[in-house]
């Protein structure tokens, strides 16, 4: 039996939007250091589950614990400070800020810089180094002073993941990282996500539709269907599931 404690434990979670039950009695435990994929048909509640963990949707029933602590009463910013990082399905950067400012807004919080840091040379130099190193890692140094809005979809994703690297947290919730990303950039994305797990020690939950991309990354897969947990297991076990094949490949008995 695996004795590692759950970093995040979700018990009997239900989320309702109006009369529509979007998540229905979902229970899930994620161990520290795991990379877990979350898949299922459109509208099955994958993003809602991430939103529930982040604190962006009200919970109908159930509990969510992070590192053994009940986080239900915490606001989203408080959950982020606790160590829950998030990337979003759409536009995880601020398009009206420069690429550098997009890094700075995350880094100054993560590094706990004082609010007056930009008036002190020492802090400015430190921040410049953080920004330059981060952008160099993802090949965006040339766009440092451009507005983030001019970047391509793939570059935006890379910028978002680069900012997450600076996040001093323990859990990352990544929502459809390959959406709008050219196939050529997907390998770089996969490398970055692996680095976040193996070098930076993040536990990761990924929502993704590209199963080939996902199954190369994750230790375990959870399948949601109609707001309920259908099955979970290793990528190899999941691929044999008939219902999953029906959903993704249209196979029928």
């Amino acid at each position: 039996m695996d004795k590692k404690e759950d970093l995040i434990a979700i018990e009997n979670l239900s989320v309702k939007f109006g009369k529509q039950m979007v998540l229905d009695n979902v229970s899930l435990g994620i161990k520290t250091g795991e990379v877990v994929g979350l898949i299922g048909p459109n509208g099955c509640g994958k993003t809602t589950l991430l939103n529930a963990i982040s604190g962006f949707v009200p919970i109908e029933a159930g509990t969510i614990s992070f590192s053994g602590r009940d986080i239900m009463a915490l606001a989203p910013d408080q959950r982020a400070v606790l160590g829950i990082g998030r990337s979003f399905q759409h536009a995880g950067v601020f398009k009206e800020l420069s690429v550098a400012d997009n890094i700075i807004i995350g880094a100054e919080k993560a590094e706990k810089f004082p609010w007056w840091w930009m008036f002190v040379r020492l802090y400015r130099k430190k921040m410049d180094k953080i920004v330059n190193d981060t952008l160099e890692n993802v090949g965006l140094s040339a766009h440092k002073n451009s507005l983030a809005g001019v970047l391509s979809g793939g570059q935006i994703r890379l910028l978002e993941l680069a900012r997450l690297q600076l996040f001093k947290g323990r859990l990352l919730l990544i929502d459809e990282p390959t959406a709008g990303v050219a196939p050529a950039l997907r390998q770089q994305l996969a490398k970055t996500i692996k680095k976040l797990n193996q070098e930076y020690g993040f536990t990761i939950i990924i929502v993704e539709h590209d199963l080939k991309f996902l199954f190369n990354l994750v230790d375990r897969v959870v399948v949601l269907v109609d707001g309920q947990k259908h099955i979970e297991g290793s990528p190899e076990e999941i691929q044999k599931d008939k219902r999953l094949q029906e959903i993704y490949f249209g196979n029928s008995d």
């Binding site: 989203p76 910013d77 982020a80 950067v93 400012d101 807004i105 810089f113």
Partner: peptide
């Protein structure tokens, strides 16, 4: 506008959830 406060104000206009996911209380 040059401080964290100013950056957060500008960012809030675009995406409050994203700001909060960085640990910044938009409220």
């Amino acid at each position: 506008l040059k401080t964290h406060f100013g950056r957060a104000l500008q960012a809030m206009k675009e995406n409050e959830h994203l700001v909060e996911s960085l640990g910044v209380s938009s409220r």
